[in-house]
Amino acid sequence: MKNILVRLAKRIFAGIIMVLVMASFTFFLVRMMPGNPVSAKYNELIMRGMTPVQAMDEVRVMYGFIPHQPLWQQYLHYLVQILHLNLGTSISYEGVPVLHIILDAAPWTIILVTTGLIASFIVGVLAGVIAAVKRSSPTGNAITLSGSIMHGIPQFVMGLFLAYVFTTLWAILPFGAPYNAALTPGFNGPFISSLVRHAILPVATYALSSYGGWLLTMKSSVITVLGDDFILASEVRGIKAKTRVRYIAHNAILPLFTIFALSIGFMFGGSLFIEDIFDYPGLGNLLLHAIDARDYPLMSGAFLLITVAVIVANIFADFLYSVVDPRIRR
């Protein structure tokens, strides 16, 4: 256990370094942009008739540093701000702190993607085990085929297709917007049911388009494990089928943990196509908007969030590994 903690501490330390590196990278990237957005904004404010002091104050609030200071001072300033979770204020939503905007959008994406991810993971992994065990039967082939097809359909095609079938052809589900705007948001029955009904299609789109990936990965992992000596050995020892399936599944699922954790990390990049099609106010739409509006503070905030999320997810996956795989626990 002590080893695990030491290992975890090392990973967290490395993670912090990586976040800092990434933050610095974003900083310099924004500074190096053609037409340096920081001084552009500053000039724009001057033109609008602000005094240089006012303009500088404004820009400092926006970006977290003072444009005319030497670069290294700006940089230090910026890092200190980040450590205080101050990501600056948005340009397009004038005056609103970036952190607020991101925190507003995050729950939509988190609910959407987590539900879809977990559903597709569970179904895909189970189907993958069956597809592997019955790989020479029609059932197995049919399951594999379903995975390949789902995997091959682009997310936006899947989304549009589902939207067409269930909101136009059958019109049994609502389309667009995360909930019925006529209802008062809150913890009441009608609102929650509206929320759920609006979430069904986007979640289903996400789940269906990631199902194939889980299925195919799990299938090949199971097939690899099936060829391992210890599986044959357990057969020859007359181990019960149930126990053997447990052995197989346990060994085969390990490689999928990393992918799962990474998917959770990348979820903070949002699901662009899905959020766009179903008009979901999540992180994907937010990032799209930030890029559209050249809202650099918002953009770097969103990138920073993705970075942190991926790194945290990685550390989590690593930790999980060292708990479930004794060979790593050293």
């Binding site: 000596d229 210890f230 357990s234 057969e235 020859v236 007359g238 346990h250 060994n251 060979r327």
Partner: peptide, 24 residues
């Protein structure tokens, strides 16, 4: 058959070095 394996017929694998589940 399954019950006979292990119970009536003990078997030591040629690849006995890898005859155990690595995770338990």
């Amino acid at each position: 058959q399954r019950r006979a394996r292990g119970r009536n017929l003990g078997f030591v694998f040629q690849a006995a070095q890898n005859s155990l589940n690595p995770l338990t």
